[in-house]
């Protein structure tokens, strides 16, 4: 957007809040092709490293009395395990590794994105849409495989009056197909907005009179972003569990 650009006359304020989301090659300045190693690649790789450090290296001692890192890994394990068990029931535990993968990836991508100068992979719709679509497709396929045509009873609210059911079915159907959209935009939108707001506050720091306020605002936003990072990962995961429950038990 033109207004973001620096060259507006007054005060020399420079706002480039969206520049942090630019994908660029890590080496050289060429085009970004499909297999180019970019900053996306780097931060996705760091997410893998973080997951491995916490879940594999941290638990390598297999201690009965856990060390600090091991107890954090166990905490994450227990957190997601209990979530899957509580929401989807015992038969959902088969899918626990997939849900754990989603949770660990999102949580680490979000928190790595909070490192200054980093690139936040989960702020891109391309990333969250892939996550949400994979959940949506898996759940839909799983629903039909497990329940056959009975999966459609998800849309047929048998507890409602008969006259209302077609209307409700239409609403349920629409809401079902909106799921991947809301599922993905919720995550990317939250992360992106927070990061952009921090950048805008940072732009104001150029004015000496406002800069203390700006620093306070950035700090406050950063605290909020830490919350958002975890909560959005949690929300994404628990919604995945809810959708999975619908696929396994479509009857209301």
């Amino acid at each position: 957007m033109a207004t973001e650009s620096a060259e507006t006359a007054d005060g020399g304020l420079v706002f480039h809040p969206m520049d942090q989301f630019i994908v660029k090659p890590l080496f050289g300045h060429g085009e970004v092709g499909m297999f180019t190693i970019t900053n996306v690649t780097l931060w996705l790789f760091l997410a893998i490293v973080a997951v491995v450090l916490m879940m594999v290296v941290g638990t390598s001692k297999r201690a009965i009395v856990p060390s600090r890192s091991q107890s954090v890994a166990e905490l994450a394990y227990g957190f997601v395990y209990k979530m899957v068990e509580d929401v989807t029931g015992k038969d959902g535990l088969k899918y626990f590794p997939y849900i754990m993968t989603l949770f660990m990836f999102i949580v680490f991508a979000n928190f790595l994105g909070l490192i200054p100068m980093s690139f936040t992979t989960t702020s891109h719709f391309a990333v969250t849409v892939v996550l949400a679509l994979s959940v949506f497709l898996t759940v839909t396929v799983l629903g039909f495989v497990k329940n056959g045509a009975g999966f459609l009873s998800l849309f047929w609210v048998s507890s409602a009056p008969l006259a209302l059911r077609p209307v409700l079915a239409l609403i349920e159907l629409i809401s079902y197909f909106v799921r991947p959209v809301s599922h993905s935009i919720r995550l990317a939108g939250n992360v992106m907005a927070g990061h952009a707001v921090i950048k805008v506050f940072a732009g104001f720091a150029a004015i000496a009179a406002i800069s203390p306020l700006s620093v306070v605002a950035i700090t406050a936003m950063y605290g909020l972003e830490i919350l958002v990072s975890f909560i959005q990962a949690y929300v994404f995961t628990i919604l995945t569990c809810v959708y999975l429950k619908d696929a396994l038990h479509p009857h209301h």
Partner: peptide, 14 residues
């Protein structure tokens, strides 16, 4: 322009 790159590396990561 960047979607292909992101999706490719994301799938590998996952």
């Amino acid at each position: 322009d960047w979607i292909g790159n992101q999706v490719f590396w994301l799938v590998i990561t996952l």
